[in-house]
Amino acid sequence: MNIVVCMKQVPDTTEVKIDPATGTLIREGIPSIINPDDKSGLEAALALKDSAGARVTVLSMGPPQADVALREALAMGADEAILLSDRAFGGADTWATSSTIAAALRKLPFDLVICGRQAIDGDTAQVGPQIAEHLGLPQVSYVSELSLEAGQKSVVVKRVFEDGYQRIRVKLPCLLTALRDMNSPRYMSVSGAFEAYGKQIKVWGLADLGLDPQSIGLKGSPTRVKQSFTKGAKSAGKVYELDAKEGAKLIVDRLKEKFII
């Protein structure tokens, strides 16, 4: 069985700080990590490799330095790593990103594609389902459990909703998006890390994928960022000394103003 895990290298947002003077994001010195949902997707793939035997390929799109995330995935136990990297891919929105990744997947053998549910920098949760659409694959998103059925022709997954869950059987090939609470990803092993540095990471660019330059990167993106801004630091609100009834009235008024109720 062939499994491809799509991963994104992201800044560790728990470390992201806002420059109080300019109100912009301080990016210098912020460590990069494998996006947490993606890392759980990788762990799920490696667990299938351990239990049922599978070849696990990790696929990422990003600048050349994203190879660090792919090396970590190799050290965790992935068999092969491919980085989609080309200046022409830059500025892509989720439509152009998913088109690019789908083009790479067309060149690879796979029975199962696993993406993380969403990346912690963009939080869109769109790339996984869009890849599935480009490839015409069935998708199940928000997956918190995964098991392979006997015969290796289908998987059963737990799909989480706000108000419950479903158990879903889906035939292979298909695409799943993984939640980070699916598992606890393993650490790199010493021998794995050693081997990983001997492995080659394939780098594919525009020419390798045979895509129309108009359909990728900024040019191929239907959406544009018009403006970005910070919310601004929050200042302490007002404190009122009131009896319970007045206090309750004031809270309800504020919640109405804020459209919370």
Binding site: T94, T124, A125, Q126, P129, E133, S141, Y142, E162, P222
Partner: peptide, 22 residues
């Protein structure tokens, strides 16, 4: 929602248009 965020990207890719999340 966990339904809308599954449905909308699939459809936006199918009709080839942009989708802005959340």
């Amino acid at each position: 929602t966990t339904i809308g965020r599954d449905l909308a990207p699939r459809v936006s890719a199918r009709v080839h248009t942009g989708l802005t999340a959340d």
